[in-house]
């Protein structure tokens, strides 16, 4: 396999992990985020700092990256997600901006706006693919469990779910935390893939891209999120020469999908539902 193809596959795995995180939050729990790249940044920087400055092995370092993202998600989620309204959406923009400010200005730890070079290239194809597969299995299992049904219930009717005994605020916070973990790990892998990270890689455009992928693939469909990742990652590679139109196209895709088919390519169905169906009947 050529290095280029291998690179694309690794990138696909990383983007897919992040997209699954956003899909759980936006597609399954109905919470809109404009700052998920910040969780990727937390994962990436935590892992880089642990491996380079503290000599930690990359595997526990990646886990720590995910955990730091989870802790921050918890701190932001608890005050904002117990309210109805767009409080989390606005706080998530604030988070994105705050993380960027901290990364750019805390020179002694993050090395500032010019970026953090010299990260071990630990994200090889087997590592990226292996972590992707484990996390994908976990996510697909999760949405087919009590927790998945709880998320969808909160998404579809906040009040009815709370009267069916769901602690809706807690479910929303937990969903955000899992979503942050996936993005944190994706960020950590991205650092190991590029050997270099920079605050600007995790700006609002990256957050937008994550949401665009999930919306395009289908809100409420996990396989749709994977499909969306594949399509958009490959299209982005193909259209690299006209990259100035890329953002315009993302924006237009978001609007057009919402106007024409808000449920995205897959609707809320899963690609493999025909495989799962006989199993579910037995279960």
């Amino acid at each position: 396999m050529s290095g280029y193809t291998e690179g694309i596959i690794i990138l696909l795995c990383i983007n897919a992990i992040a997209a699954m995180g956003v899909s759980l939050l936006t597609g399954f729990t109905g919470i809109f985020s404009l700052g998920h790249a910040a969780y990727m940044a937390l994962g990436a920087y935590t892992t880089a700092i642990l491996t380079i400055q503290h000599g930690v092995h990359w595997f526990p370092a990646i886990l720590c990256g995910g955990i730091v993202a989870v802790v921050v998600a918890y701190l932001i989620g608890v005050p904002t997600l117990r309210l109805l309204g767009d409080y989390y959406a606005i706080a998530s923009i604030g988070l994105g901006e705050a993380i960027r400010l901290i990364l750019e200005n805390w020179q002694s730890v993050t090395r500032g706006a010019r970026g953090y070079p010299g990260i071990d290239p630990y994200t090889t194809l087997p590592v990226a693919a292996g972590i992707f597969i484990v996390l994908a299995i976990g996510m697909f299992n999760l949405i087919n469990s009590r927790f998945g049904r709880a998320c969808k219930a909160c998404r579809d009717d906040y009040i009815a779910s709370s009267l069916l005994g769901f602690n809706t605020a807690r479910i929303r916070v937990v969903s955000l935390m899992i979503s942050a973990f996936y993005c944190g790990v994706a960020g950590a892998l991205l650092g190991g893939f590029l050997s270099f990270i920079q605050p600007v890689m995790f700006d609002m455009l990256k957050s937008t891209e994550l949401t665009a992928v999930v919306v395009f693939g289908g809100l409420g469909s996990m396989s749709g999120a994977l499909l969306g990742t594949a399509v958009i990652t490959l299209v982005t590679e193909l259209f690299r020469p006209i990259s100035q139109y890329r953002m315009l196209i993302y924006g237009a895709v978001l609007v057009i999908v919402m106007v024409i088919r808000p449920e995205g390519i897959m609707g809320n169905r899963e690609l493999l539902s025909w495989i799962k169906a006989p199993f579910r009947r037995k279960a």
């Binding site: 299992n141 999760l142 469990s145």
Partner: peptide, 10 residues
């Protein structure tokens, strides 16, 4: 009931 971990691993 079953735990979150049981849900994630089936």
């Amino acid at each position: 009931h079953y735990t979150f971990a049981e849900g994630m691993t089936h």
